[in-house]
């Protein structure tokens, strides 16, 4: 394989990985801190897209749409957590309740989108600034692909700074380890849960808006991204933020080079990687420390 082909496929894989990471990181954050496997996470990706679409109908500005989509997805996320999910924390059979409730939200939010915005496909154009492409040697790189990769890494850096270098970040990490103790120390743990849920769903919304100029804005789009995100989370380790980054990079690049070398097998390869990880290290490559609501 020549260098041009390698660079081209590597950048493609990186772009796929970064969008996957943006979705999966929210999913894994919710699991790690709130201890909820949020099957409806893809619906917040969808909501972000549609809120951005609505904003662009009013103001015709992608950047404003990006903010509106992200914030509104987060706000809806907090409402869902505060008014619904909170009521099932600590119940016997909580896992089954989580599954049922988050699955119900997939159906409710999907139908709500169809009811408000209609069944037809919508369009969110790229901002003019990012519409072109540039060359690295003979490799064509769309500016928008570069934008996705950059935003992905910026989110990684911000998350690292917040979780590792701020007091609030330490509280979030502490709440994933021992909520009861944190509560006894005077911290408002339920509020942390709600805020984390809001930030994580906002990240899903951000991913939705970022992906929209490249994908189809349609009801049902949220369900389509959740499977790949779950694979990423399983590979990286449930509840592990950095695991989501590693899992996304592995899946993005495996898919990208798989398409080049074994196009018939490319989709299956990601599942094979997941199975191999499950056999060798079932808790995921960067497994989290023991968590659980106490």
């Amino acid at each position: 394989m020549d260098l041009t082909t390698f660079v081209s496929q590597f950048i493609s894989g990186l772009s796929v990985a970064m969008l996957l990471f943006l979705i999966a990181s929210g999913l894994t954050l919710i699991f790690g801190v709130v201890n909820v496997l949020n099957f409806a996470h893809g619906s917040f990706y969808l909501l972000g897209t549609y809120f951005a679409y609505q904003s662009m109908q009013f103001f015709d500005n992608f950047w404003l749409g990006l903010i509106v989509g992200t914030v509104c997805a987060g706000v809806v996320g907090m409402i869902v957590e505060f008014f619904f999910l909170k009521r099932i924390y600590g119940r016997a059979e909580e896992g089954a309740f989580q599954l049922l409730m988050t699955y119900a939200f997939i159906l409710i939010l999907d139908d709500m989108v169809k009811f408000i915005w209609g069944p037809e496909y919508k369009t969110i154009p790229k901002p003019e600034l990012l519409a072109g492409s540039f060359n690295i040697g003979s490799v064509v790189v769309p500016l928008y692909t570069l934008f996705i990769i950059v935003v992905g890494f910026v989110v990684v850096l911000l998350a690292w700074y917040f979780l590792m270098r701020t007091d609030k970040g330490k509280m979030v990490r502490a709440s994933s380890l021992d909520r009861e103790m944190l509560g006894l120390l005077g911290t408002n743990v339920p509020m942390i849960m709600t805020l984390v849920f809001g930030v994580a769903t906002a990240m899903g919304g951000l991913a939705g808006v970022m992906a929209a100029p490249l994908r189809t804005v349609t009801p049902g789009a949220g369900v389509e991204v959740i499977i790949d995100s779950l694979i990423v989370v399983v590979i990286g380790g449930f509840g592990n933020f950095w695991g989501a980054l590693l899992g996304a990079l592995i899946i993005g690049e495996v898919l990208s080079f798989g398409i080049l070398w074994m196009p018939e097998m490319a989709t299956v390869l990601t599942f094979i990687v997941m199975i191999v990880v499950l056999v060798i290290k079932p808790e995921g490559l960067l497994s989290p420390k023991a968590t659980g609501r106490k």
Binding site: V16, E224, L260
Partner: peptide
């Protein structure tokens, strides 16, 4: 010179596109 089989509803075709260009 090539046959590519993404899954139905594949959200991201970037890597398929670069492979087709090659």
């Amino acid at each position: 010179v090539g046959e590519y089989w993404p899954k139905l509803y594949e959200p991201d075709y970037t890597s398929y596109i670069t492979a087709i260009m090659k």
